Simulated assay, not measured.
Amino acid sequence: MMCIAVANQKGGVAKTTTVTSLGTAMSELGYRVLLVDLDPQACMTFSLGLDPDSLELSVHDVLLGQVSPSMVLQKTEDGPDLLPATIDLAGAEAMLLTRTGREYALRNALDDLQEAVADDGEPYDVVLLDCPPSLGVLTINGLTAATEVLIPLQCETLSHRGVGQLLDTIADVRKMTNRKLKVRGILPTMFDARTTHARDVLDDVAMRYKLPVLDPPIARSIRFAEAPAAGRSIMRTARRAKGAEAYRIHAREIMESSGIAAKGDERVGK
């Protein structure tokens, strides 16, 4: 099972949009996809048509070991399954700090869930984690559980100032809790090809941090802001939008570059 953490401690860089769009695109290709909302703001949960305020159980309860992940699992209209978040998750960090092995809470929960669904014959092919805009315990849990990190980056100068801190945290996680963690690269978001500034920012990031910059960039579009109001991803509300097509390209490339791709292609008859 591939597990991708979508992380950047700066807010407003399209982490949630990236997770929902990639997850839906992968589901379109025939893969079994799980999305995990690790942000106490619960934006992804809301964006996929659930009311966080009405949920009795969430990933908060899973991380604290109070319930099994399968009890929290929700189906979405867009295709992927979801472990939703609520505001209760804000208190999980403080509670986890007192626990031994707190960094492994999510990894252990995902292992348990994968075993449970495998018993039914339908294990997940890929898990996508929507990390909160911080470098706290929840993000560390995401990085410890992940096989890869994808870094969405708004193409503006101030947006890449925290990338170095995130990379330092990733380096620490590699040393302490997850030696196999890899960085897939930077995904440019809210990209305006008409400006030289956006292109200059991408060139600077690639040179400064020695990271791959994934192509194509995700173009700025009002369609991304409209989708959450419908409780769906842009892959359903504006299927032919330029941004939706770009996410489909990235989803296919991610799956084709993984060891799971052959299985997925075979399953969907490609």
Rank of each mutant, 00 (worst) to 15 (best):
T144K: 13
P217K: 07
L181K: 14
R194K: 06
R208I: 03
R194Q: 13
R179P: 07
H160G: 00
L158P: 02
Q165Y: 11
L202I: 01
L211A: 01
D200P: 04
R208S: 09
D168K: 13
K182F: 01
Q154L: 01
C155A: 15
A206E: 15
M207V: 09
L167V: 06
Q165K: 14
L158D: 05
D200Y: 02
L181C: 09
P228G: 04
M176A: 12
F224R: 05
R199D: 15
I151L: 11
T195I: 03
A198D: 08
R199A: 14
R223E: 09
I186M: 06
M176G: 01
R223G: 02
Y209T: 07
D172G: 09
T177W: 05
I218E: 05
G231H: 12
D192Q: 07
P212F: 11
I151H: 09
Q165L: 15
R199F: 08
A206N: 03
K180Y: 09
I218Y: 06
M190N: 08
M235F: 05
I151Q: 11
A198K: 00
K175Y: 03
R179Y: 04
N178D: 12
A227H: 10
A198I: 00
H160C: 02
F191L: 10
Q154Y: 05
D172N: 12
M207S: 14
R232A: 06
A230G: 02
I218T: 09
R184W: 01
P216L: 07
F191I: 07
M207R: 15
D200I: 10
Y209L: 03
Q165D: 15
D168Q: 15
L166I: 03
P217F: 05
R199W: 11
L166F: 01
K180F: 10
I170Q: 13
R161S: 11
D200S: 15
M176Q: 09
L153G: 00
D168M: 13
L150Y: 01
L158Q: 09
A145Y: 02
L181V: 12
T195K: 02
T177Y: 10
R161V: 12
D215N: 14
